[in-house]
């Protein structure tokens, strides 16, 4: 399996690098979280620190969110939808390799490129911008990276589970968008969860969305204690298990309905 992953990753990194403009535009979308940051900075300038979060906290939070947005968000469902309608999905089915691995490596390939471009950029900016500070020990960094990785895996598995709806509806992307849109408020993407109303914050801490955004960011800012870190990892693992199970069950039922359209 290592050889398969190696070969597929190499190919997908190659595809990611094939179009320079596409890649540049893609990386530029990292700026979106910085727009949200500017809103919060305006608030802080006007009314002072929000619930203990000052300018430096918001800058550090959203600068890292820019990287996380690219590294943990899964676009898999759009690829799946397109493959489903064009007939390319059939070619994935014909291979003696579960399409899950084919889509996962595709996602990994693109993320690898982004990491290679954005991480040095973020490190450089951190050194140059005094407001950015991540005072973490080695374990803290390791836990943050691990949280990002498990968050990414959860997003992929969640997208795969939703993608199987396409066996019934031919298209699943819009249903996923609805789910993901709701998640934007519960993930820490629109605003850090500790600044949300208590009911939203409490709900968000048990939902799958925070695992790939709010959790690693709060970890990076040193705002979580050991118990909260353990609980958050357990929530992530639980949702990975749930979505993996849903994916498998839905696949088993749905594959009977596959119509292999598009050629």
């Amino acid at each position: 399996m290592i050889a398969v992953y190696k070969a597929l990753l190499r190919a997908h990194i190659g595809i990611g690098l094939a179009y320079r403009t596409r890649l540049t535009v893609w990386v530029l979308t990292s700026l979106f979280p910085l727009l949200l940051m500017s809103v919060w900075l305006a608030v802080v300038d006007e009314v002072g620190p929000a619930n203990g979060w000052d300018r430096s906290d918001f800058i550090s939070y959203y600068a890292a969110a820019a990287l996380l947005w690219h590294t943990t968000t899964s676009f898999l469902i759009w690829t799946w939808d397109s493959d489903f309608r064009s007939g390319d999905f059939s070619f994935k089915l014909l291979k003696p390799l579960d399409p899950f691995h084919q889509y996962l490596t595709q996602e990994f390939g693109f993320r690898t490129i982004v990491i290679v471009i954005l991480v040095p950029l973020l490190v450089g900016i951190t050194l140059l911008v005094p407001a950015l500070h991540y005072e973490l020990d080695l374990l803290g960094w390791a836990l943050t990276v691990f949280a990002g990785l498990t968050g990414f895996l959860l997003n992929v598995v969640m997208a795969m589970a939703f993608a199987t709806i396409a066996f019934w509806t031919t298209q699943a992307g819009n249903i996923y968008s609805l789910w993901w849109g709701m998640g934007a408020f519960l993930s820490g993407w629109v605003a850090p969860l500790p600044l949300m109303p208590p009911i939203v914050e409490a709900t968000g801490r048990w939902m799958p969305f925070r695992s790939s955004m709010g959790f690693p960011l709060e970890l990076l800012l040193g705002r979580l204690d050991g118990a909260e870190i353990a609980r958050s990892f357990a929530v992530t693992a639980g949702w990975i298990g749930i979505f993996l199970l849903l994916y498998r069950l839905s696949w088993r039922r749905g594959i009977h309905r596959y119509q292999a359209v598009g050629g």
């Binding site: 050889a3 190696k6 070969a7 190919a11 094939a18 059939s90």
Partner: peptide, 24 residues
């Protein structure tokens, strides 16, 4: 399928061959 294509569109065909070597 004559009207369909399983090769990686943006890469040289050799890349598809190497991926198939690993998968098969």
């Amino acid at each position: 399928m004559g009207q369909r294509n399983q090769l990686f569109w943006d890469l040289p065909a050799m890349e598809t061959f190497l991926v198939n070597q690993a998968i098969y």
